[in-house]
């Protein structure tokens, strides 16, 4: 990994020195051991602050939405998952490719359970690749957890989700970290509409959880950020995973964020659809 890190330092420095980019999004060490946080490097002399190691767990891509009209190009360190997130946002028309310079980072997995089920350890789109490609893995079942849930009885599942939604504190961290949650204004923030009740209880939490699952379920890029950030440890990926599994069964191999011009299953109109209309 240190090879990648030194390549990153060199390239970030050069990009900033040459004025090719306005800033570089990556990771830097946070206080304490084994902890990094997203970094935004604007000066060439700060390039060495960037790190790449197995504690770089945060998704970088979502920050592109914090700066939709950048003054210059934004360079972004992107692993396989981050590039899927970028493709997601490109497909959704949320960012412009010409505004982004992608420093691709091959990743054998960071300190996150989700990486065990990662099928895209190498960046899918990049302007340059730092280091050698990582070996891809296929020895896992992408829907293992979802299948475990599906094996439960209806009553068990109902109880499980009742418990989980009771736990939820609706901090909206899952939404705010999710690259597929890229609406300019979330339905839950449209306080005038009253779609999302402000009460904190299982009913309103379920409204939020399920609405979000349907909104992003056919566009989820499986980065697992929603679960990582959830302070209450809700298994949020089971919701989107269930949607993906369904799409997979209905429409064949279904993965999101593999290219920059995907239309999501539920956003596609196709006369040859397996089901009849109406």
């Amino acid at each position: 990994m240190s090879d990648i890190q030194s390549a990153l330092h060199k390239r970030a420095r050069a990009l900033l020195e040459n004025g090719d980019v306005e800033y570089v999004i990556g990771w830097e060490n946070a206080r304490g051991e084994n902890k990094t946080r997203p970094a935004f490097i604007r000066r060439a002399e700060d390039a060495e602050r960037l790190v790449w190691n197995r504690w770089c767990v945060n998704s970088t891509a979502k920050y592109l939405l914090h700066d939709r009209w950048p003054k210059g190009k934004i360079a972004i360190c992107a692993r396989g998952c981050d590039t899927r997130a970028i493709n997601r946002m490109l497909s959704d028309g949320q960012v412009k490719r010409e505004n982004i310079y992608i420093l691709g980072i091959p990743c054998a997995g960071v300190e996150n359970q989700i990486c065990r089920r990662c099928a895209h350890r190498n960046p899918l789109v990049y302007d340059e690749l730092l280091g050698e490609p990582a070996e891809e893995k296929t020895d896992f079942d992408r829907f293992e957890k979802v299948k475990e849930m599906q094996a439960m009885t209806l009553e068990q599942r109902r109880q499980m989700w009742e418990d989980e939604f009771t736990k939820c504190i609706r901090c909206y961290a899952c939404r705010n970290v999710c690259p597929a949650c890229n609406c300019r204004e979330c339905y839950a923030d449209q306080y005038r509409t009253g779609w999302q009740g402000k009460q904190f209880n299982a009913v309103e939490n379920r409204v939020y959880g399920l609405t979000r699952a349907y909104h992003v379920g056919d566009r989820c890029i499986e980065c697992g950020e929603c679960e990582r950030v959830c302070p209450m440890d809700l298994p949020i990926m089971l919701q989107t995973g269930r949607m993906l599994m369904e799409c997979n069964e209905l429409f064949g191999q279904y993965e999101c964020g593999l290219s920059d011009d995907e239309t999501p299953a539920l956003g596609t109109y196709n006369l040859n659809d397996a089901d009849s209309f109406g």
Binding site: F40, H66, R170, C171, A173, V177
Partner: peptide, 16 residues
């Protein structure tokens, strides 16, 4: 800007 840039603007800090 430097202090706040990584913030995702969720309510986690407030709620815990």
């Amino acid at each position: 800007q430097e202090v706040t840039e990584p913030c995702l603007q969720c309510g986690t800090c407030s709620f815990v």
